[in-house]
């Protein structure tokens, strides 16, 4: 199938893109890598009047680091995340996750910002953002806003991003020393969207100061931080001790739905298994 006809303009600056977006109103659509958008266009699921190409905006480029925070330009391609020494050093969870995103040819063009703004509930990176307590910098006609990752994902393909706003930068706090991360997903085939996936960030070792953020994806309509399960683990004497209660708590944390690949019961089972295996991995890392 071929896309509906639309107009296209390549923006040179963020201001120009914002102005174009405002002028286009409902008919405007941003494109960066296009790896989620173009399939939807080709399937005639979307009919924008104007495509505004933000792939070349200098404001969206770059990976930088300061004393407390890593800053990822929204235009950072998946391949750049995978190859960045800064990401490797400070955000190993992202590096673990990004290789599960589709395939090399897609990762070469798909962007972090596009991935997050698309908000596919089975996507890997949104879950990592919540686990890592990322902050999204968005810019609109009214200026800048900062949105916590936990508040950014609103539902199926739905985010807190306004129709006239552009996601510019993602800022992620540098993890404290000794932080541990786990990433795993259960996909039928390599590169497919997962039936269920889990990203975990944790730091601290003693029960008093241990903090853990297990975030599930592919389970509901958006990535879900399993708060009750985390609480069970943080209150337990050890991860192993907290496992059973945490698995039980997932029944309250998660609300899986039936879909083509699996019914809700299967998904819950997979989530509980992922949690068990994730904790085992974190324990092993702690020993290592």
């Amino acid at each position: 199938m071929k896309a509906y006809a639309f107009d296209y303009v390549r923006a040179a600056t963020l201001d120009e893109a914002l102005a174009l977006l405002e002028r286009a109103g409902d008919g405007g659509k941003l494109v960066a890598g296009g790896q989620s958008l173009v399939p939807a266009l080709n399937l005639r699921l979307l009919a924008p009047q104007l495509l505004i190409d933000i792939a070349h905006l200098p404001e969206l480029r770059g990976i930088t680091c300061d004393d407390t925070t890593i800053h990822l330009g929204a235009g950072t391609r998946h391949v750049e995340l995978a190859n960045s020494p800064l990401v490797a050093e400070h955000l190993p969870l992202l590096q673990m996750a990004v290789r599960h995103v589709a395939h090399a040819a897609i990762r070469n063009r798909g962007t972090l910002g596009g991935n997050l703004a698309h908000a596919d509930p089975a996507s890997e990176l949104p879950a990592c953002m919540i686990a890592l307590e990322a902050v999204m910098l968005v810019v609109g006609p009214g200026g800048e806003r900062r949105i916590d990752a936990a508040d950014f994902f609103k539902g199926l393909y739905e985010t807190a991003l306004g129709p006239d706003e552009i996601l510019v930068r993602i800022s992620i706090p540098r993890s404290p020393a000794g932080a541990r991360f786990h990433f795993n997903e259960l996909a039928r085939r390599a590169g497919d969207y997962a039936m269920a996936g889990l990203a975990i960030a944790m730091h601290g070792n003693s029960p008093q100061d241990m903090r853990i953020r297990p975030v599930f994806f592919g389970i509901g309509d958006r990535p879900v931080l399993a708060r009750q399960a985390a609480l069970c683990l943080e209150q337990a004497a050890s991860l192993q001790d907290g496992l059973a209660a945490a698995q039980q708590a997932l029944l309250g944390d998660l609300d899986p739905q039936d879909d083509l690949q699996a019914d809700a019961g299967t998904r819950m089972q997979l989530a509980q298994v992922l949690l068990k295996r994730g904790l085992a991995d974190l324990v092993a890392q702690g020993r290592g």
Partner: peptide, 15 residues
């Protein structure tokens, strides 16, 4: 033989 089919047969479903 999907994961759902196998888990169902094993009675391994939660929720």
């Amino acid at each position: 033989l999907t994961p759902s089919v196998i888990l169902k047969a094993l009675g391994q479903r939660s929720g």
